[in-house]
């Protein structure tokens, strides 16, 4: 599904250059549940953003479902990502001025989904995450866990093939964190949605089937969480 080849990301500050990612190559297959780990500043988030087409690599090639994303225009990339990719953030990033219902509806509006279909899709999500009662509340009126549920629901509503989750449990206490991880796990197993998550939490890393460790912008290790996966990079 995703194939990264020699992805490098660097910023220049005057005469010096800072490398965030150095020649990272990585393949993600359809249906994978991958966890990216590593200390702060190791490039986890940048890698996730590049996969999500929110950021562009400085060099290297990126194929998404066989398509050469690195050659695409901004608009075409946006098209691709909004068709196939859902995001979940540590800070939830719901839109403060919109109700739960409207937050869920917004991605569909951008995709120009018809009104009636929009309604049923949002209703389905509200139902599925058990938040029907909260649909008219604003994010500030919800607990962190509830907000993150809405965040996941919003990511899912476009029926993405890939979900990118940037420390989805980082701001939650363990009970809520477990609940979110269960949701992601079920999605992966039952619907075959590919998931790439960034986390610091070893326990949650175990939900995935593969762990990639980054250090100083390089892939330090790439190992399966279950014995049968071959180690290597």
């Amino acid at each position: 599904m995703i194939s990264l080849r020699n992805i490098t990301k660097s910023y220049s500050h005057g005469f010096s250059r800072t490398f965030v990612l150095r020649r990272v190559s990585l393949d993600v297959a359809e249906g994978d549940f991958i966890t990216i780990m590593g200390p702060s500043g190791s490039g986890k988030s940048t890698l996730l953003h590049i996969m999500g087409m929110l950021d562009e690599p400085s060099s290297g090639e990126y194929y998404f479902m066989g398509e050469p994303v690195h050659t695409f225009s901004d608009r075409k990339r946006t098209d691709l990502h909004r068709q196939h990719i859902g995001f979940v953030f540590q800070a939830y990033h719901l839109i403060d001025d919109l109700t739960v219902y409207e937050n869920l509806e917004t991605p569909l509006l951008y995709k120009k989904v018809k009104g009636s279909e929009r309604k049923s899709l949002v209703a389905e999500m509200l139902d599925r995450f058990n938040i029907v009662a909260k649909k008219d509340l604003f994010p500030s009126q919800l607990s962190g866990g509830q907000q993150q549920l809405v965040g996941v629901a919003r990511a899912l509503i476009i029926k993405p093939r890939l979900i990118l989750a940037d420390e989805p449990t980082g701001n939650l206490h363990s009970g809520q964190g477990d609940q979110i991880m269960e949701v992601l796990k079920r999605l992966n197993e039952e619907e075959g949605v590919t998931i790439v998550q960034v986390t610091h939490n070893d326990q949650y890393a175990a939900y995935g089937d593969r762990v990639i460790e980054l250090l100083d912008g390089r892939i330090e290790s790439d190992r399966a969480t279950t014995p049968e996966t071959v180690e290597g990079s």
Partner: peptide, 9 residues
């Protein structure tokens, strides 16, 4: 956020 969830410029 809006860009992430699919808004175009």
């Amino acid at each position: 956020v809006r860009k992430v969830i699919g808004a175009q410029r």
